[in-house]
């Protein structure tokens, strides 16, 4: 049994509008709990400014690290044929679908083993420290960066590389002079999405680095701590900061996508 054309279109459009209104209601209800004056006071408070700075810093560092690893890794996954490629490809998806708390727990357990303690001894401390936030974010977002970049490289016709090789460029020169310029928009979009995912990361961060005000308090941790202290206004103010950041990121992505398609 099928719906009539009119009923089908009305139903689909109706659900779309309902979903949109649902999010608007959530935002309006949230906004009603915190006035503009209170919001400004919270935004410029020492703790929230610290959380904003810490979130931007850790998300930027983890994004840079992720891109350094993900660009060559996704290129290898996209272009090379090798035994076990399917297994690696599947395993790399695990951090994307696994609960971040589970990733955080795995990291915490790792640093409680002899190997983990040796790593901390000879490098820098991670557990309940800022580097722990970066490591937790990196572990969660790197796989996402690989996945996004792989689809970017997959979408580039391999004949560009073939032409470049026959024009006298080595494979590495071809990577830098042909593939990266062709992947420019995809690289930027992947970096922005990775950064956005990192800035919103909570589960792995709180498990490995803890929730210590003015030490490991990122924006999502700030929401958690505000709720823990029953400070709803503060929690909603931080939510709006994250919403503003998400909107800015999505506008940037849309602009890039539009540039790519025109």
């Amino acid at each position: 049994m099928y719906f009539s054309d009119r009923a089908f279109k009305t139903g689909a459009f109706g659900l779309l509008i309902s979903l949109f209104l649902y999010f608007i209601i959530l935002l309006v209800c949230g906004a009603a709990t915190v006035g503009l004056q209170r919001f400004t006071a919270i935004l410029f408070s020492e703790k929230i400014l610290f959380a904003i700075k810490l979130s931007i810093f850790t998300a930027t560092v983890s994004t840079i690290l992720s891109m350094i690893v993900a660009v060559p890794a996704s290129f290898a996954l996209s272009r090379f044929q090798f035994r076990g490629k399917g297994i690696i490809d599947t395993l790399l998806d695990v951090p994307i679908i696994l609960s971040p708390i589970a990733i955080g727990a795995m990291l915490l357990i790792f640093f409680n083993t002899a190997t983990g303690r040796t790593v901390e001894k000879f490098t820098i401390p991670f557990v309940f420290e800022v580097p722990g936030i970066i490591l937790a974010q990196f572990t969660v977002v790197c796989a996402l960066a690989v996945r996004l970049l792989k689809s970017t490289f997959d979408s580039i016709d391999t004949r560009y590389e073939k032409v470049s090789r026959t024009l006298g460029l080595s494979s590495s020169a071809t990577f830098f002079r042909v593939l990266l310029p062709l992947a420019k928009n995809g690289l930027i979009a992947s970096a922005i999405l990775t950064w956005a995912r990192a800035i919103g990361e909570f589960g792995a961060t709180v498990t490995l680095a803890g929730a210590m005000p003015m030490k490991t308090e990122t924006l999502p941790v700030a929401i958690y701590l505000s709720f823990a202290n029953a400070d709803i206004e503060r929690a909603m103010a931080v939510v709006f900061i994250l919403v503003a950041m998400a909107l800015a990121v999505l506008l940037l992505i849309r602009k890039l996508t539009a540039e790519k398609t025109t």
């Binding site: 004949r159 073939k162 032409v163 090789r165 026959t166 024009l167 006298g168 460029l169 080595s170 494979s171």
Partner: peptide
């Protein structure tokens, strides 16, 4: 390798 063969190549 292709870069050392000095052939011209025109793909589809």
């Amino acid at each position: 390798p292709p870069e050392q063969r000095k052939f011209g190549y025109v793909p589809q």
